[in-house]
Amino acid sequence: MIKLLYGLITGIVFGFLLQKARVLRYDKQIGALRLQDMTIIKFMLSSVLVGLVGIYALQDAGLAKISVKSTQLGANILGGLIFGLGWGLIGYCPGTAVGAVAEGRWDALWGIAGMLVGAALFAEIYPFLKTTVYTWGNYGKLTLPQLLGLNHWLIIILFIAGGLALFRFFAKKGI
């Protein structure tokens, strides 16, 4: 039960930060899709980098265990295409759609409805996908540090350096 409570608290904090960063706004979503406004990209990249450090620090301290899912290129590519198509059509990604509804933007309900329909369709066609798409490019449980044979902290430092360079580039371009 305590894990559920931690998840709820984390979700509330993340939702609050989404709202404060103004990434729930439709104009920010469209700006990101058109590569004209990097607010969402910067927010998500910051979240990924902080999460990367946090998860590995917790794992190294023995407080968490990372559960790596199989790398399945077919499923990842198909899922990414569907996600991108939905985001492009409705102008909200799943998290921002829920946040936008919480702010009173009822157009985002179409995104939530689409997610529910998509989840139902996925559940129906999963047996077919499992024997087809999920077998394309299946590399098993693989992480970048394992693939490169390097310590995970070296990879994390490289990602942070890359992220900071990207932030600097966005600042110079004014986006």
Rank of each mutant, 00 (worst) to 15 (best):
K42G: 01
L18V: 07
D37R: 04
V13G: 12
M115S: 14
L81N: 07
A32P: 00
G86E: 01
L85Y: 11
G99V: 04
I77Y: 04
I157Y: 02
L18A: 09
A102K: 05
L129W: 01
L8P: 09
G15Q: 03
A108C: 08
I66S: 05
G91C: 04
Y56V: 01
G91N: 06
I90W: 08
K173E: 02
W87H: 10
I2W: 14
F43I: 05
I9E: 07
M1R: 10
K173L: 05
Y126S: 15
A75S: 06
G95A: 11
V13Q: 12
N76Q: 14
F14H: 03
Q36F: 04
R22S: 05
W87I: 10
G86F: 07
A165I: 08
L158A: 15
G99K: 07
V50E: 08
A21I: 02
N151F: 04
C93P: 03
Y92A: 07
I30M: 00
F122S: 13
F169V: 03
W153C: 00
A161M: 11
V68M: 09
K3E: 13
I155Y: 02
C93V: 08
M38E: 06
L121A: 14
G140F: 03
Q72H: 05
K130S: 14
L148G: 06
Y92R: 12
L63S: 06
T135N: 13
L24S: 00
R34F: 01
A108K: 04
W153R: 05
T131S: 08
F43S: 09
V68W: 12
G51N: 09
W153P: 01
L33D: 00
I160N: 07
L63I: 04
I82D: 02
L73V: 14
L148R: 03
A161P: 07
F159N: 11
K65C: 06
Y134L: 12
T71K: 01
G84C: 08
G51L: 04
N151T: 05
L116S: 03
I160G: 05
A75N: 00
I82A: 07
I82S: 01
A113Q: 14
G15E: 00
S70A: 15
A120Y: 06
N76H: 14
L45P: 01
N138R: 10
G91E: 08
A21C: 10
F128V: 13
I66E: 12
F16V: 10
L89P: 07
I2V: 12
Y139P: 09
T143W: 10
G15M: 00
V13N: 10
P145N: 06
Y126K: 15
Q29K: 02
A57Y: 14
L5K: 04
L63R: 04
Y6T: 05
I9L: 14
I157L: 11
G11L: 00
